[in-house]
């Protein structure tokens, strides 16, 4: 008998739930709203997606705009998630990560009245209702490369990438150029080891690669490898050497062993673009690029492990990048040209 009552109670609760739910669902929110989908790394990836969502939340606090997100668990979720956001009252929809690029093209074609933007992807032929947002990742990478070059005592530094592609190459060439610039300034040779983890989520592999680099004489390793990169930081912690963080300030992962971080303020760029779109500007069909000049990339202000003199020098370099006296290379061609110009 008791069980029967319980089931009846349960049924009643569910029915009540439905009714209550319908009530709240019927309330339409007015005003501008922005939403985003993550890629498969998820909203708590300690990196890219998280930075994006934090940026939108700050934007929401500052402007009162409603923000929301949908998390993608598999790449098959991109289309359905973007469609679902299209059904909600979102006025401006962000698709985070170049992995989502194909899905966005499909959805944007099906919903010509909606406005979309994608982080980290520039299309060859951008649809009219899509805005590409890319970052000059080579600029903060140049800066941390310079810092690494100035800080290294073994004249040997490393770089661990995720999966080799154009975006990660920006990090690599920027970093290598920064190291070379510092080497030139100090009149010495600095060896740079580069290796890819072939994954953005394999912390064990990142750790193995970095441990090897440290044992071969590197004392600073920069990583642009997403989840694999946390392994690099762990390796630095175990070896008592330095790692350089990426995307967000990753010092909290190993306060003693993170030299600095190359920030890519995805969230900041997203709020800048969202705000402009909210105020009626239209960037459809364009690709916007954000760098040092827009203050969307850089290094943290607090770097307890860094020599203050090096920080001072780095800030001078940052100024040179901002006003265009130094152009950090992003591709192999630019990098070769940059090395030529150093000679």
């Amino acid at each position: 008998m008791k069980l029967k009552k319980l089931t009846a109670l349960g049924t009643a609760a569910v029915m009540l739930a439905c009714m209550a739910g319908c009530g709240t669902a019927a309330e339409e929110e007015s005003g501008f709203s922005v939403a985003m989908i993550t890629d498969t790394a998820g909203i708590n990836d300690q990196s890219f997606n998280q930075s994006a969502w934090e940026g939108l939340q700050e934007f929401s606090k500052a402007s009162g705009v409603e923000v929301n997100y949908l998390e993608s668990k598999q790449s098959a979720d991109y289309v359905t998630n973007l469609e679902r956001l299209g059904d909600s009252d979102a006025d401006f929809i962000w698709s985070v990560g170049f992995d989502t690029a194909d899905a966005l093209v499909e959805v944007a074609a099906n919903n010509p009245d909606l406005r979309y933007a994608i982080v980290d992807n520039s299309y060859e032929d951008t649809p009219d209702n899509v805005t590409g947002v890319v970052f000059k990742a080579e600029e903060p990478s140049f800066l941390v490369g310079y810092i690494a070059g100035k800080t290294t005592t073994t004249d040997h530094v490393g770089f661990v990438g995720g999966i080799e592609n154009a975006v990660i190459r920006q990090f690599m060439y920027g970093y290598e150029a920064g190291v070379s610039y510092a080497a030139k300034e100090m009149g010495k040779e600095i060896q740079i080891d580069v290796q890819y983890a072939e994954s953005f989520s394999d912390a064990a592999k990142g750790k193995a690669i970095a441990s090897k680099m440290f044992s071969e004489g590197c004392d600073i390793v920069y990583q642009a490898a997403g989840g694999s990169g946390t392994g690099v930081i762990e390796a630095a912690k175990e070896a008592g050497k330095y790692a350089i963080g990426v995307d967000r300030d990753q010092a909290y992962l190993a306060p003693e062993n993170v030299l600095t971080s190359a920030l890519k303020k995805v969230g900041k760029a997203m709020s800048i673009v969202s705000e402009k779109v909210m105020n009626g500007e239209d960037f459809g069909g364009q690709t916007l690029s954000f760098g040092m000049a827009e203050e969307c990339v850089g290094i943290p202000e607090e770097n307890p492990n860094m020599d203050p003199a090096v920080y001072e020098d780095a800030m001078k370099i940052a100024e040179l990048i901002k006003n265009g006296e130094i152009t950090a290379p992003a591709t192999e061609e630019e990098y070769t040209a940059f090395l030529e110009s150093l000679k």
């Binding site: 739930a17 009714m19 469609e83 679902r84």
Partner: peptide, 20 residues
């Protein structure tokens, strides 16, 4: 989180549109 509204949202997310 409100349990009633949550379960309702779940139902809505499944049944409220043919495409869902």
């Amino acid at each position: 989180y409100p349990p009633a509204a949550s379960i309702a949202a779940l139902g809505k997310g499944i049944f409220s549109k043919p495409k869902y």
